[in-house]
Amino acid sequence: MSILKVENINKSFKTLQVLQNVSLEVQPGERHVIIGPNGAGKTTLFNCITNVLPIDSGKIFLEGQEISNMPSSKLVHLGMSRTFQKNNLFGNLTVEENLHLALTATKRYRYQMFHALTKHIDLKKETDEILAQWEISTRRNVKVNNLSYGEQRLLEILLAMASKPKILLLDEPTSGMSPAETAQTAEMIQKLPRTVSILIIEHDMDVVFSIADRITVLHHGEVILSGTPEEVRNNEEVREIYFGGGAKAHA
């Protein structure tokens, strides 16, 4: 069974149709990349999947369970989690506090009212693990606003990973990064365990082809093609639309 299945969803803003009969499937463990020129509706698709925007029609399934109209906060508890195109963090809190907030979301004690949060040992342990694993332990007590841009992008992903999702939706994780940071991030995404499936919007073709198991091409709100990197690379239509006449295909 596929982990995420999007079936014929439509979304329009007033008269503008942004998504048109979009369907796609993500298999367990798959790295599924969505590409498409600006304005193709990629981020809108994410917002519809996570129900930040309600869809007009169609269905969305997570592990076979319909989630089309489920509040986005509930989706996390079913195993779906996302990041944002622009950094969307708690800028006045430290790295550690950001992680605490993200980790507590799936804890049973998240409704506790008079017992100090930081006294929970498992929270401290998990925070330490994450900080150590990604080699940012020295940044623990730094306010997020004082982190470098690349570090903030990393934290963005770590927050989404904190709930141990089955599927992770990454919205342009390398946007605005330097080439070095981009390479680092690609490497990081490759390091994520295969127990988590990833649906990712990405612009950088090097990153796309280095991580993708499968690619879906979106153009004007429609799916042009969904296939292996090889199929996408060799598809004439995609070259025409996306690579602007095939001038710059990364062969």
Binding site: T50, V52, P71, S72, S73, K74, L75, V76, H77, S81, R82, F84, N88, L89, F90, G91, N92, L93, L101, A102, A105, T106, L159, A162, S163
Partner: peptide
């Protein structure tokens, strides 16, 4: 501080 993100965190 950031309602939308808290909601996205679950």
């Amino acid at each position: 501080e950031n309602e939308a993100r808290m909601s996205a965190l679950g």
